[in-house]
């Protein structure tokens, strides 16, 4: 997958979505948090960090979320993204997310021979759900047992004795690509102090998100594998695809010419070769529709109806 005029024209609405993703969420624009803060009468400066989907997903599973949304309605955005993913697929991930869209765009500028590519050969579902359980486990263990105040916790001022004994901590803030994106944009827009402080977790995140999983990965979507909102969105999308009234990318094997064009443009490694055809991995598909627009035979469509299009 590379960037050329034809690709740009075919997917113009999606790439426009990338720009809107920045305008909606990243400071100095951050239109959506700005509107929410304005309606709340809050003086906080809206940034990509203030939306914080990682912390929000963690809180959904530890119970903190449902009390927090009353005072921080900005946390509803993650829930909206998940509900949308059930009915229409992970549209936020594929069309708006500034973190994924930035690295996907940069990856397109990198020559193919320099990029890591195991697309179609690995099960991203295994990696993503393995990560997700590992992401939630410390947070849930942090709720068991009597809570004691701890130093070092960003998301909550207390943790349980169990978490303390095991020596584990939540990872949502320590490895946060949203901070990296916002710091880089702040730096590029004149706030040179934004790159002053880098901690070990931030450096690890930067290397994986921007370089290994971004610029030098085919598709540039490596960070999505370890994004809790992305995993959760794909999990509900997978359930949604089993139902007829939801939207999904559908494949009609009777029209498929097995040209491999779709596999070559999928940034999420969601299309796998099958016998004289392809299969779509719902645990990875972000309904970006790159495959739909690239398919010259009309075998791939984005529509409602049941998952498998049977031969007529």
């Amino acid at each position: 997958m590379k960037l050329n005029l034809e690709t740009l024209k075919r997917n113009k609405w999606r790439y426009l979505g990338f720009i809107f993703g920045f305008l909606f969420f990243v400071y100095p624009f951050a239109a959506i948090p700005r509107i929410i803060y304005f309606l709340q009468g809050s003086l906080a400066a809206p940034t990509l960090h203030s939306v914080c989907y990682r912390m929000t997903v963690e809180w959904m599973f530890t119970g903190r979320y449902w009390t927090t949304i009353i005072v921080q309605p900005i946390r509803l955005l993650a829930l909206i993204a998940i509900v949308v993913a059930f009915f229409f697929g992970p549209l936020f991930c594929g069309w708006l997310c500034p973190i994924g869209s930035l690295t996907e765009s940069l990856s397109r500028l990198t020559p193919r021979r320099l990029k890591i590519d195991f697309s179609g050969k690995v099960s991203l579902g295994a990696i993503r759900y393995g990560f997700f359980i590992g992401f939630l486990l410390p947070a849930i263990l942090g709720m068991i047992g009597p809570a004691t105040p701890v130093l070092g916790s960003c998301c909550a001022p207390e943790a349980s004795s169990v978490a303390e004994t095991l020596g584990i901590a939540g990872i949502c803030c320590r490895y946060c690509a949203a901070s990296s994106v916002q710091n880089i944009v702040d730096f590029l827009t004149g706030n040179f102090a934004a790159l002053t402080y880098w901690h070990t977790g931030g450096i690890i995140t930067m290397v994986f998100w921007l370089f290994i999983g971004g610029i030098f990965l085919f598709g540039g979507r490596g960070w999505c594998w370890v994004c809790p909102l992305g995993v959760l969105s794909n999990a509900v999308h997978y359930i949604g695809t089993k139902l007829g009234f939801t939207y999904k990318v559908k494949h009609d094997p009777t029209k498929c010419k097995d040209c491999g064009q779709c596999r070559g443009v999928c940034p999420s490694w969601a299309i796998k070769p099958a016998e004289k055809s392809v299969s779509i991995d719902r645990h990875a598909c972000t309904v970006c529709k790159e495959c739909v627009t690239a398919c010259s035979s009309g075998a791939l469509t984005y529509s409602r109806g049941h998952e498998d299009v049977k031969a007529s």
């Binding site: 990696i127 990560f131 486990l137 130093l151 960003c154 977790g201």
Partner: peptide, 27 residues
Amino acid sequence: LFIGALCLTLGGSLYSAHLAKSEILHF
């Protein structure tokens, strides 16, 4: 792959807890 990703993430959690009291300490 599942167990590998799980272990890597839990390893990241342990490392995170180790660093939390010396780097950008939250209180």
